[in-house]
């Protein structure tokens, strides 16, 4: 049985806080659950908090980019918040700069980013 990460809702924003090192299947479950929840709850925004993640490898990095793309198609914006400096350095060196994924330093800044008009959203 694979784990599922809880998805919380604040207003029209969905909030996911990743608290542990993820198994691949859990990552895939999250993708599907988020897509379902964006539609079911008419969410306008998704915030993924990765401040507890010590590493983000290409699999998880791709998941973040995929979630951003899926939510864009479902008319919601995604902001990844709380990336550790060492994770950012490692991702860039790995060759994954997560173009198309909007980021903010913490949850508060992420919510602020989502509340701004859509014109400032990434491509």
């Amino acid at each position: 049985m694979s784990e599922r990460i809880p998805i919380l809702r604040i207003g029209d924003t969905l909030l996911v806080s990743v608290q542990t090192d993820l198994e691949d299947q859990t990552v895939l479950n999250l993708q599907e659950d988020l897509a379902d929840q964006i539609v079911a709850r008419s969410a306008q925004g998704v915030i993924i908090d990765i401040s507890a993640l010590e590493i983000v490898d290409s699999f998880v990095g791709r998941m973040l980019a995929t979630i951003a793309a899926i939510s864009r198609m479902l008319d919601a914006r995604t902001v990844v918040v709380g990336m550790r400096p060492a994770v950012a350095i490692t991702l860039v060196e790995l060759g994954l700069s997560l173009g198309g994924v909007s980021t903010a330093l913490d949850l508060e800044k992420g919510l602020a980013k989502l509340s701004r008009p859509t014109s400032s959203a990434p491509q």
């Binding site: 590493i55 400096p85 060492a86 060196e93 790995l94």
Partner: peptide, 17 residues
């Protein structure tokens, strides 16, 4: 160092996968 730990663990994750 923390950055080197992160790089090594990430590389190991890629190679194990």
């Amino acid at each position: 160092s923390l950055v080197d730990q992160t790089k090594l663990i990430t590389a190991a994750s890629e190679l194990a996968r």
